[in-house]
Structures are given as C-alpha cells and as structure tokens.
Design a protein around this nucleic acid. Structure first.
Length: 720
DNA sequence: GTGAATCATCTTTTT
DNA sequence: GATGATTCAC
C-alpha cells in the first residue's frame, strides 16, 4: 500500500519540512518558482502515506484550473483520488446546496455575474429613489462588495452609518439584497458570505464539516478576503490542521477585497504555527530574479524575502521602446516569430499586458505574421450575446424566480411581447408579491394587457413550464430542444450571414454541455449552470495548445514560460491610471503585479513601452512607467526623435496622457465662471473634489443646473 | 410593439 | 469606441 508519489531526496531541506509537517497549523511563505505546487502535492501524498484518508483532505486553490491540475497530479502519483480540491467559490456552492435550509436559501439558486449584478444595482438604485448621478452603479456595487467581503449585512451598515454616503449605500445594499432574494439569486460575494454565516451560526454543521475536512490546505492565501478567511478558520477550528501557502509579494487582488493581513497575521491566529520559508527559486535565471528583487524592494509594506537563484546566469532582460502600440505589437510578433524559427516551443512563449483591451493589436500582428496564439480569456465566450441569450432560457428553467433571466429570455428575439407588456407584468407581479413567471402564467388576469398579448405571454410561460417538466438529467439534449423550440434558432437563421457565427457559438455551447454531461456523474441543469458561472479566464488556458499565450498579468499568476514579453510599461497603464489616485498602497499592488509578470519568465524576458498609445480611440503621448526606472532603465531621448509618429500625431494630443492627469488636478471654486462645449457659459454652484471622480454642479446661463463628472465635462475656466 | 437612429455613459484587474 | 438607454417613425 505504500507508494512513492514523490521522490523525497529531490526535496530541499525547507521543502521537506513543509511536506512532512504532520499535525497543527503550518504557514508556507513561498516565493515565486519555489516549487510550491510540488510541495503541496507532495504534502498531500505524504499525509495519505501517513494514514490520512483522502476524503478527509480538502485543498483550496485559486482557480478551478489549479484544482483540476492538482487532481490530475494526485491521480498520477496514485492514491490521491478522493481528495477534495476546489476553489473557495466552488466549495461554497457545494456547501450551500448541501445545507440550503440552514443557510436560508433555496438550492436551485442562480449565481449572478457582474452583468447581472449591475442590472440589479441599477434597479436597487431606482427603488431607493436616489440621485444616480453621484451614486453610479459601479461605485455602489463596489461599496456593496466591500461590505460583503467584510461580512457586514445591510442592517449593520445602516446601523453604523453616520454620514450621507454610507447611509445611502446601505439603503441601496438593502434593496439590492431584497432583489437578489426575490430572484433566488446569489452573487459571487454572497456565496462566501452565506457560507461564512452558515459556519458561524451552525456549530453542528461546522463541526461536521471540520470532521469531514480534517486537513485543510489553502493555496494563494495572500489573496484571500475576510470572508474566505473566516470560512477557512471555521473549517479548520475542529482539527487545527490548517496549512496555508502564499507569497505576500504576489498579492494582486486587494481591489477585490483580498486582505494581505490574513497571511501576515497567520502566526497571531495560530500561535503554534510552524513557519516554513521557501526562498530558493528553481525557475528563473539570476538575471531575471535580480530584476524582480530590485523592483519589489521599492515596496515598503512587506516582509523582506530574498529570491535565491539556483540556475546559471542567462541573458539579461531586454527593455525596448517603440514608437507606438502598433509598432510594439509588430516588433514583439517579429521577435516571437524569430524565436519559433529558432526552434522555440510556442507553448513556452507568453505575452502579458495590464488590460484586456491591449490584446487586440497584438492579435492583429499575430494574425498577419501567422503566429499561432491563444488569448487566455475563458469568460469571453460566455459573455457573448447569443450565449447569454441561450443560457437565460436555461436559467429560467432551473430557477423560475430569476426575473433577470426571464426578462432576457423574453427579449432574445421579437415575439410580440415588448417592453410595455413586460413592465405591466412586472408591476402586476410586485403588486401581488409573486414572481414574474407566475404573473405571466396568469396573464389573463392582468387587465392592463390586451387579450391578444395576454395569449402570447401565457404561451411563453407555458413553453417554459413544458421544458421544466423535462429538466432533470443531462443538459445538452434539453438545451438543443430549447434552442429549437424557443424560436431562437429560427430568428438567428433569419438573420442571415451575420448570425451564422451566433448559431455556431450556440452549437459549441451545446457541445460543451454534452461534454459536461459525459464527465459528470449526476448531471443536472442547476449544477451545470452553477459551475459555468464560476468559470474563469485562466480555466481556458491550454498549456499544450502549441500556441503562444496572450493574457493579462492577473491571469498569469501561477504560470511559467521560458519566454515572456510584458508590454505597455507606461504611466497610466502599469501602474494603471486608476491606481494612481489610491495612494501608495495601490501603487505597491501595481508593482507586485509587475513583479508577478517578471517572475513568470524562466529564461528570456522582454519588457517594452511605447511612446504613443491608442487608448479609447485616442492616440496619446505616453510617459515611461516609473517601474522601468526602478529596474534601472533610462529611456534614451534620441530614440524617440527618430519616429515619424511624433510629428504626425503631436497635434492630436500635444499634452499627452501624463499631462491629461495634471489638468484634472486644478480645482474649481464655487462662483467661478466656466464654459461648456454644449451648455455654454455657467457659474459653479458646487464642487466636490474627489480626485479623478470629482463632481461639479454648474448653473448655466440657460437657467438649467447640471451635475457633471469633471473628467467628462471638459470645462474651461473663464478668467475674470 | 418593433427597429433604426441618436444620445449618453464611461472602461482595470476577476471569482 | 462600444455599449446601453432613449427617442422616434412606422
């Protein structure tokens, strides 16, 4: 029964300490390329060798992809079957379905993605009669997300709210939660918060789960938020066998609520914790590591940690300056083509960028030069209109309370039920406190709707009802049926060539559903929908695609490549403009992001910036990133002069990206005269200085009073 | 009720 | 510049 899942003599002393640590809390601070993944897998294998039963082990990873890979590695080692590996979110879905009653929810809940969330917040804002000028959906949503990450309920917020902003945000939060409840839906944060509360409020369940998962391992612990922290703690309380691994220098999700203190304070929480530091790096050349080291040393909020190289010296990283983003893409593509011609494996080449929109120019260059590539953006497929349309039917079938999905399903194509009808149905539903679906079922009772339309509405509800009767079992056959019977297929066919790709995409969705059916023991629609809701960008990464990979720096976490290209090292891009208003802390996170990018490279690293970049349709002058200076790079002035782009475009944007930011800093005073391109001259009534998001209220000569976002208003001061 | 046309809003990163 | 909301003609 003994089995060597790993060769112990290949482990370093510190790796061995982590692997063979038996009981009690363990903190593994693992630098990039320190063999952390291998240590975790070996540790699980060692536990099993020591007699721990696999199903008593729960490993929590950052992405579904990582969970899947861990399962594969464990299976390859033999004996790892039965170990529970998943992300926090997947685990929560599982637990919430298992203990739906105790959690006070219904187990066929919908999971709302960012788009659904936005719609809900909009409605919540409307319901709370709030001026949406100052309370934009995006802002309120991030406030709500922060509340949830800190495990604060609307009641708690309203109770502690002492100023207008918090009070209002709390009210919208309350409305928003009501709306989700009504729709039998949970958003991403709810999955965590509900599980945390489930464990907190039900000692018996907590104990049962603690006994189920006697050994808990949490990877990427530096990126856990407070809710996740509470969940991990709750699960581990019973047996105290909690092992967390992570690297504070690679924490890049603070904006999502990740609390770096979770890892920094682990020893406070578990005073008997054994701490193992893995500082040796088995991945990169010393040249690359020195650069990463020099860069991250600029961060003040960190525990000093060295990167100890184990490889021989290699080539120095190259830092290039290009005329503009287009040239950058073409040149990078050229270098990559040369690498491939020299025999490099495309699987071992990656291009990283800060924002998704930057993939387009690179893609175009790759297409032109016929370089095979994959854009690692898994969620993109599910964000397509036709896919969302198709899935909206499936969601209603699984959860008829989901008005959000119902509204979308009705509107996928014209069927004689328009906006007016829907708002009448909605009104009727809220009047009688029933779901829209039920209201549609009894449409003949809604006398604001004409009999003709009533028939159509009832027919739609009946159609859903019919599918619901056959909703159990495999997903793909039902989906195929719905595609046909809903009329969606016909309406796309009628659309001609434009919609051909839409049909192909839905066919692909059906294919993937049938793959799900095959791979899942007990396939069910609700399970399928809940699992695709948690699908992430990185899940689409195929390490053996034989293609060059394009991805954001965030998606690059956990991966490694022989050749890495990081593009767009410019102020406003990396560090991102939005982080500049957030002070030193956010700047440090941007620096960590760059650090993560650099340390993905094994041998060859290319970093580049462009003198001009087209952003939001504007060709703008850029400033080299401060991070470039920090890694010892000085832009050579004469390089810039040689580009024709300078003269050609300098009139379009003489001041450039950098100075655009400076302009915003000029404050406006009450009473000041200003001019607006459209509204003419006016007097400043009120000015709220909120940095980049400053709001200005102006009374124009026409008499109208406008509340404007300063950054979009484009106001000029009229002196005197 | 529908679809075309126009207007307004606002873009980081992601489970 | 893309996407969504709103408006308007049918």
């Amino acid at each position: 029964m003994t089995r060597q899942a790993f060769t112990t003599d290949q482990l370093t002393e510190s790796q061995r300490r982590a692997v063979f640590h038996k009981d009690g809390p363990l903190l593994v601070i693992a630098g990039p390329g320190s063999g952390k993944t291998r240590v975790i897998t070996s540790r699980i294998a060692a536990l099993i060798d020591a007699g721990v039963r696999p199903w008593n082990i729960c490993a929590i990873t950052f992405t579904n992809k990582a969970a899947e890979e861990m399962r594969e590695r464990l299976a390859a080692g033999g004996g790892g079957e039965g170990v529970h590996t998943s992300t926090f979110h997947s685990l929560c879905v599982r637990l919430l379905r298992m203990y739906a009653d105790a959690a006070g929810i219904s187990n066929n809940f919908s999971i709302y993605d960012t788009d659904d969330q936005r719609r809900c917040v909009k409605e919540a804002i409307k319901n709370s009669n709030i001026d949406s000028k100052t309370f934009t959906p995006a802002k309120v949503l991030s406030a709500i997300s922060n509340f949830k990450n800190d495990l604060e309920t609307p009641e708690q917020i309203l109770e502690r709210a002492d100023e207008f902003y918090l009070k209002t945000a709390g009210r919208v939060y309350e409305q928003y939660q009501k709306l989700l409840k009504k729709n039998n839906a949970l958003d991403f944060d709810d999955l965590l918060i509900n599980t945390a509360f489930l464990l907190r409020d039900n000692p018996d369940i907590r104990q049962a789960l603690g006994n189920r998962y006697q050994y808990l391992l949490v990877d990427e612990y530096q990126d856990t938020n407070h809710a996740q922290y509470q969940i991990a703690k709750g699960l581990a309380l019973e047996h105290r066998n909690i092992c967390v691994t992570g690297d504070p220098d690679q924490s890049i999700y603070k904006w999502r609520g990740a609390d770096i203190q979770n890892i920094l304070m682990f020893e406070k929480d578990w005073p008997d914790a054994v701490v193992v530091k893995l500082e040796e790096n088995f991945r990169s050349t010393p040249n690359i590591l020195e650069m990463a080291d020099v860069l991250i040393a600029n961060n003040t909020q960190r525990k000093e940690k060295r990167l100890v190289a184990t490889h021989d010296r290699g080539a120095d990283a190259e830092i290039e300056c290009y005329g503009d983003g287009l040239e950058e893409s073409v040149e990078v593509a050229g270098k990559i083509q040369a690498l491939i011609e020299e025999g490099a494996d495309p699987n071992e080449i990656a291009v990283f960028y800060r924002v998704n929109s930057m993939s387009r120019t690179v893609e175009e260059a790759f297409v032109r030069q016929q370089i095979p590539y994959q854009v690692v953006r898994g969620v993109e497929f599910y964000a397509r209109k036709e896919i969302r349309d198709m899935l909206s039917y499936m969601k209603v079938i699984a959860n008829p309370s989901d008005d959000m999905a119902l509204l979308r399903a009705v509107g996928t194509h014209s069927r004689g039920i328009g906006k007016m009808t829907l708002s009448r149905v909605q009104h009727y539903a809220s009047q009688y406190g029933i779901t829209m679906f039920n209201a549609m079922n009894q449409a003949d009772a809604i006398d604001t709707i004409t009999p003709r339309t009533q028939t159509k509405v009832k027919a739609f509800a009946a159609m859903i009802e019919k599918w619901r009767a056959d909703a159990d079992g495999p997903v793909a056959p039902l989906m195929e049926r719905v595609f046909d019977e809903s009329g969606l297929l016909d309406s796309l066919r009628a659309g001609g060539e434009d919609e051909e790709s839409a049909i192909e995409n839905i066919d692909e969705l059906i294919n993937s559903a049938s793959r799900y059916d095959e791979m899942t023991e007990e396939p069910s629609l609700i399970d399928y929908l809940q699992s695709i809701a948690l699908y992430s960008d990185t899940d689409a990464y195929d390490a053996e695609a034989g293609r060059v990979s394009l991805m954001t720096l965030h998606a690059a976490k956990g991966l490694e490549f022989d050749n890495v290209f990081i593009i767009g090292l410019e102020e406003g891009l990396l560090p991102h403009e939005r982080s500049l208003v957030g002070g030193e802390e956010e700047l440090e996170e941007e620096r960590r992001l760059f650090f993560v990018g650099i340390t993905r490279a094994r041998k060859v690293l290319h970093i580049s910036h462009a003198r001009y970049r087209t952003m939001r349709g504007q060709h703008l002058r850029t400033t080299p990133s401060k991070f470039l200076y920090e890694i010892g790079y000085t832009p050579k002035e004469e390089q810039f002069e040689s580009y024709t782009y300078d003269t050609e475009f300098s009139q379009v944007a003489p001041s450039g990206f950098g100075s655009k930011i400076e302009k915003k800093e000029a404050p406006f005073r009450t009473g000041e005269l200003v001019e607006h391109r459209k509204f003419g001259t006016g007097r400043v009534k009120e000015f709220q200085d909120m940095g980049d998001n400053s709001i200005i209220v102006v009374r124009f000569q026409s008499g109208q009073v406008k509340t404007l976002m300063l950054k979009y208003a484009n106001l000029t001061k009229l002196s005197g």
